[in-house]
């Protein structure tokens, strides 16, 4: 029973990492840019949902949808304002700018929302305590993997079955050639940022329901860990991001369960895994080539 309990916990946490990791991996696949601000975009998404729910009294699904839409817009704005001017600059310049955007969002968050955490209410449907014998599970823990699977299926459909997805896949192979073929690359990049940011908002909101509180620095650790998950799975690969997220979530839960005396080192585990992966299998689980 205990093992099953841990597996469910790992699956839930892993699904959240996966949702966030997908945004990283999509942007990286196309622009070869680590969007450092991704975790902070997630934080903004959570605040939008919080305001929607508490100030405007929206039902949870409406707050979620609204937040995803507005966060998508934020992602596009960040790309157009901060990254687009640096498309032709050295890659490191864009990375430094991304770090700047990340700090800007965090500190604007501190100024606007205040540093004190805000309680994030769990909607009724996710707040049921289910019990089978010894096994006690919050309904949220079961919903999260289901919702993640649905979102991922939708995303894979977009990537493999639509014109937009085709353009994205082409772009991730060769940006210059696609440009020459008359495709408006900026619109495709913008769409990528929009999709990735919306997924980050969704991931963040479920994250917030799990812990149930939000603060302006909440995106930092999930963001970094999700990036590690993306690398674990092979960066640029959406299915890989899912696998990497699940693997990382499982590892963290199992570390705490099996070696409780090392529980304090849980946040370091992701980076130890990252270093291990880069040493022994730099291309990740799904085997995308690691670019220079």
């Amino acid at each position: 029973m205990d093992a099953l309990q841990q597996i469910i916990n790992g699956l839930t946490l892993g699904s959240l990492y996966a949702l966030i990791a997908i945004g990283y991996t999509m942007v990286y696949g196309i622009l070869r840019l680590i969007n450092f601000a991704h975790g902070d975009v997630l934080m903004v998404g959570c605040y939008i949902a919080w305001f929607g729910a508490t100030m405007f009294g929206l039902p949870w699904w409406a707050a979620l949808m609204g937040s995803m839409a507005l966060t998508a817009l934020l992602g596009v704005l960040i790309d157009q304002g901060a990254y687009r001017p640096l498309r032709k600059a050295p890659r490191i310049s864009a990375l430094i700018t991304a770090i700047g955007v990340s700090f800007l969002l965090e500190n604007l968050g501190l100024v606007v929302f205040g540093g004190r955490p805000k309680a994030f209410e769990r909607p009724e449907i996710f707040n049921q305590l289910l019990q089978w014998g010894d096994l006690r599970v919050l309904s949220l823990s079961l919903w999260v993997p289901v919702i993640t699977a649905l979102i991922l299926a939708g995303l894979l459909f977009i990537i493999h079955r639509t014109r937009l997805g085709m353009a994205m896949r082409a772009l991730s192979r060769d940006l210059v050639t696609v440009q020459l073929m008359g495709i408006d690359t900026n619109r495709v990049v913008a769409a990528t940022f929009a999709l990735g940011s919306a997924l980050a908002a969704a991931g963040g909101i479920f994250w917030a329901m799990k812990y149930p509180q939000i603060n302006p620095l909440m995106g930092v650790l999930p963001g970094l860990k999700a990036f590690v998950a993306a690398v674990l799975g092979g960066i640029g690969n959406v299915t890989g991001a899912l696998l990497g997220g699940l693997l990382l979530g499982m590892c963290e839960i199992l570390l705490v369960a099996w070696l409780p005396e090392l529980a304090g080192y849980r946040d370091a585990l992701a980076f130890v895994l990252l270093i291990g992966i880069l040493i022994f299998r730099p291309s990740g689980i799904m085997g995308e080539e690691l670019p220079e």
Binding site: R32, L33, I34, R91, I92, L95, L224, F227, V228, V231, D267, A268, A270, F271, L274, I275, L278, P282, L290, P291, E292
Partner: peptide
């Protein structure tokens, strides 16, 4: 590793 990965790995060490 090089480039972005170097940045992330060193950031990880800091963490």
């Amino acid at each position: 590793v090089r480039g972005d990965y170097l940045a992330i790995v060193t950031l990880g060490f800091g963490e």
